[in-house]
């Protein structure tokens, strides 16, 4: 099971020529980097810069965040036109009003809206910047060399690999994130959902539709 960009490009498709020694780590292997993490963490605790309890709480907080947060934002935008307008004008403030504080990460959020004519997708070609507070940690493919390289050059081919074929009449806009500016896609509300409550709508919004590599399907 591979999880990092180094693993992903070890298939003769890169120009560096060296082998990648790193293997997927298991929690029972004490690699150099695991030792480095332990050492830095313990030194910071000894210096009273952080506490073990704080680390535990932040890990729990990271584990508690998931695409359900973003799905709640999308469902509210679908249900409340005023909120939608506020979200498109100042997503950072609109999300803060729902309890999603970007300030924790020192970042701004922009929400881009899909329409019948425009499909948006998000990448971070330089790194792996991602709206973590709304979607949790990014999936491995988002951080991979292949996605970062190709999303901006051949987005339609990339979308096809995700099973999404868009007609030529739909423009594809690719948004390249930075450390300070993250993007969330507001997917189109599917037909047949007119009678659904905000909570019911949130339940049909999938993670990839908010990255732009999928759409939200109408409920069966």
């Amino acid at each position: 099971m591979s999880h990092d960009p180094a693993d992903h490009h070890g298939h003769g498709d890169h120009a560096h020529g060296h082998r990648h020694p790193n293997q997927p780590d298991h929690d029972d292997t004490l690699t150099y980097y695991r030792k480095l993490e332990m050492a830095v963490r313990e030194l910071l605790i000894e210096k009273n810069i952080i506490s073990a309890d704080e680390v535990r709480k932040v890990v729990e907080n990271i584990e508690s965040r998931s695409p359900e947060g973003g799905a709640r934002v999308v469902a509210r935008a679908w249900s409340d036109p005023q909120f939608k307008q506020a979200l498109l004008e100042d997503a950072t403030a609109a999300c803060a009003s729902m309890g999603f504080e970007m300030a924790l990460y020192d970042v701004q959020l922009t929400v881009v809206e899909n329409t019948p004519d425009v499909h948006n997708m998000v990448v971070c070609t330089l790194c792996s910047c991602y709206p973590r507070m709304l979607l949790g940690l990014p999936p491995a493919w988002y951080k991979s060399r292949a996605y970062r390289s190709r999303a901006v050059r051949e987005p339609r081919a990339v979308l096809r690999e995700f099973g999404l074929e868009l007609p030529d009449t739909v423009s594809v806009r690719v948004h390249d994130s930075t450390a300070d500016l993250r993007y969330l896609v507001l997917p189109m509300r599917p037909e047949g959902t007119e009678d659904m409550s905000e909570a019911e709508l949130a339940a049909i919004v999938n993670r990839d539709s908010m990255i732009g590599t999928a759409v939200v399907a109408a409920p069966k």
Binding site: M1, S2, H3, H8, H9, H11, D13, H14, P24, D25, H26, D27, R34, E37, M38, V40, R41, L44, I50, V55, V58, V59, I62, E63, V123, T125, L126, L137, P139, A140, W141, S144, R145, A146, Y147, R148, S149, R150, A151, V152, R153, V158, E161, F162, D176
Partner: peptide, 26 residues
């Protein structure tokens, strides 16, 4: 990396291990 040649996208979802989450927490 934007626009450089690369192969197919690996869709495997990798769940982070505790030590990796601790790096994010730090």
């Amino acid at each position: 990396l934007g626009g450089t040649p690369a192969g197919p996208i690996d869709h495997d979802e990798h769940a982070l291990q505790l030590w990796e989450k601790r790096i994010e927490a730090l």
